[in-house]
């Protein structure tokens, strides 16, 4: 109860900050919460998401950064296989919802747990799990971070290994990300994701064009719900 209301408050405060930053409508309905944010120095934290069917030893931490300015640098760390940057950096414009991203995390985790990873680690596996096709390079290009990525979803999956029996804590991960990602921390919520989703790209990548029944749905919520269902199916059936 307390946690959820705190989350709501965070989301509200966050919106205000974003509005302030982008100079959108100074008298927005959320304007009054700006005053609140002056009193409470609440920072947007990474969210640790417990997933059904995943053992508690494995944790999924998700952060959302908007208006990221150093995407190219972050990508270069990945390309250089810098072990300090073992993250799944996902371009938020191709993600439609929390469930969409978390399904990719679930798929990567089940592959990790059953020892059937097709890519070097669980984080690259997450990015390729988003793709409906078998082509790994394509998956990185379309769903991973690129030099032009503006809004970034970061997923860190931790679990104890023989080499590192105690995985980094959420605070440590948070600190490292705050130091390295130049962007606005944002709540990992469906509403915040919806603001940056590029449905044109989603429809193209998941082959959702040319379905007359889908285009005929007038209600936007219904139509997006249907598309999300197809997206999950396409991911589950990737490359098989």
């Amino acid at each position: 109860m307390v946690r959820s209301s705190l989350n709501n408050l965070r989301a509200v405060i966050l919106r205000t900050r974003v509005d302030r930053m982008q100079q959108i409508q100074p008298r927005s309905p959320l304007h009054h919460t700006y005053i609140l944010s002056q009193f409470f120095a609440i920072t947007i934290m990474l969210e640790t998401v417990p997933l059904e069917l995943i053992p508690p030893t494995h944790s999924v931490h998700v952060g959302f950064y908007r208006n990221v300015r150093n995407s190219a640098k972050l990508q270069s760390h990945l390309l250089a296989r810098n072990t300090d940057f073992e993250y799944a950096f996902v371009d938020a414009s191709v993600v439609s919802s929390r469930v969409h991203l978390l399904s990719a995390a679930f798929r990567a985790l089940t592959a990790q747990l059953s020892g059937t990873l097709r890519t070097p680690n669980v984080h690259s596996e997450l990015v390729t799990s988003l793709s409906p096709s078998h082509n790994i390079a394509d998956a990185y290009r379309r769903f991973g971070i690129g030099p032009d990525t503006k809004d970034l979803l970061v997923v860190k999956i931790t679990f104890p290994t023989d080499a590192v029996p105690t995985p980094p804590s959420r605070e440590q991960i948070q600190k490292h990300l705050d130091e390295n990602v130049e962007g606005t921390p944002t709540d990992f919520s469906d509403e915040a994701i919806a603001e940056v989703t590029d449905w044109g790209k989603v429809k193209k990548y998941y082959k959702l064009n040319g379905l007359p029944w889908l285009d005929a749905i007038k209600d936007q919520e219904e139509s997006r719900g249907q598309m999300q269902g197809l997206v999950l199916g396409a991911m589950a059936l990737r490359g098989v």
Partner: peptide, 20 residues
């Protein structure tokens, strides 16, 4: 199931699978 879904046949969604 996925093919049915694309053709708007009412069937359950596929959430995830592990064929192995």
């Amino acid at each position: 199931l996925y093919r049915c879904r694309r053709e708007a046949v009412p069937v359950p969604l596929v959430f995830a699978l592990d064929e192995a």
